[in-house]
Write a protein that binds this DNA or RNA. Structure first.
Lengths: 201, 201
DNA sequence: GTCTATACGAAGATAGAC
DNA sequence: GTCTATCTTCGTATAGAC
């Protein structure tokens, strides 16, 4: 990923304009999706001046979005890997769902998943985003399928069930957004957990 | 993409310019989402002239999108109601999935669900779209939950399982798009069908 | 009634002032 | 190195010609 193009020794970690813009882009991706995330919107949200974007992201809007997705995907992946390392399947799912319930409520049901935002839009001009999203989903799938295998699911069933879980949680988050209620997420997760418990292994 | 016969300078004045524009808007919603669906794009895809939009849709872009969602939602709802009337749960799901596999392949994994496109974007300027989408999802949920109840699921489990199904199918379609393969949809649906079969009633 | 021409603003990008 | 001013293109909408 893009390394710091600065010279000199250990630069102090200042509250970087670059990091701020990436955070703003992630927020916008969550709420407005890819097409809805304009440079203008990010600038308005962060208060950064216009030219700064092209100083920090020579590739312009495309690079800003790409870096935002990588950053968001990295953080979410680490979280999922931690949850799937320290819990059994039902617990991991429940903790993940709890975080999403909170995000939904705190954003007034406006914010969704920034990685999923890429999956629901075909953008001819930025195919690299699709590749990045695919990799991130694969990482989540790997973590979850591994957890299921460690809990005695056969590999093929674990793989399918991991896919179902990712699809269902992402889908339910979207339904919860439009319905302005966590009920779809709650219901989907409850059934999934029942599935984990009763599934033949 | 709307089929457009190129028969010289004079386009055949076909069924209805209005219907053609709605169809074009639906196609664009499927591929590019709400923010990505501009009037320009619909015009380019349909070959309709600029002013026609505001003649047929005095409410402009907002009305065009609203009518497109209503039309698409109506067609899809009738299909789902038919499938859930004439089949058992596993069959209905399989037939619905088969249609989506076909759509994914034929669109080269570019087209998704036009109603779901609304659920994944928060658009402050068009809240009526969210309401329309909510109603359509409710209609699908009703049809599916009813089918499950008729197949001996208790009402509360049927309701949750219907939510899980809608969320999982929509989520899996998106994953299939970005992954350019029907595998996510196939896997999610196979697990769901197993769930239908083994679930305690 | 259909379409062309255009006004007006938003958005991506760049040049150059400080 | 940061920001402002500006170019260009795209997008929504309207006026008005035919």
């Amino acid at each position: 990923m893009a390394a710091r193009p600065r010279t000199g020794p250990a630069r102090p970690r200042l509250p970087d304009a670059r990091q701020t813009m990436i955070a703003g882009a992630i927020d916008s991706l969550r709420v407005h999706g890819v097409s809805g995330t304009s440079v203008d919107r990010v600038l308005a949200a962060t208060g950064a001046p216009r030219g700064s974007v092209y100083h920090h992201f020579p590739g312009g809007r495309t690079q800003l979005l790409g870096d935002a997705v990588s950053a968001a995907g990295g953080v979410m992946s680490e979280l999922i890997e931690q949850l799937t390392r320290d819990n059994d399947p039902a617990q991991a799912l429940e903790q993940f769902a709890a975080l999403w319930r909170r995000t939904l409520r705190e954003s007034d049901y406006r914010a969704g998943c920034p990685v999923f935002a890429i999956a629901v839009e075909t953008t001819e001009d930025t195919p690299e985003l699709a590749d990045a999203a695919t990799e991130i989903f694969a990482r989540w799938h790997r973590a979850l399928a591994g957890l299921l295998v460690r809990h005695d699911f056969p590999a093929d069933r674990a793989a399918r069930l991991a896919t179902l879980t990712v699809a269902a949680v992402e889908g339910a988050i979207a339904l919860s957004r439009v319905q302005r209620s966590t009920a779809p997420l709650d219901d989907a997760v409850e059934e999934l957990r029942g599935f984990y418990a009763t599934a033949t292994r």
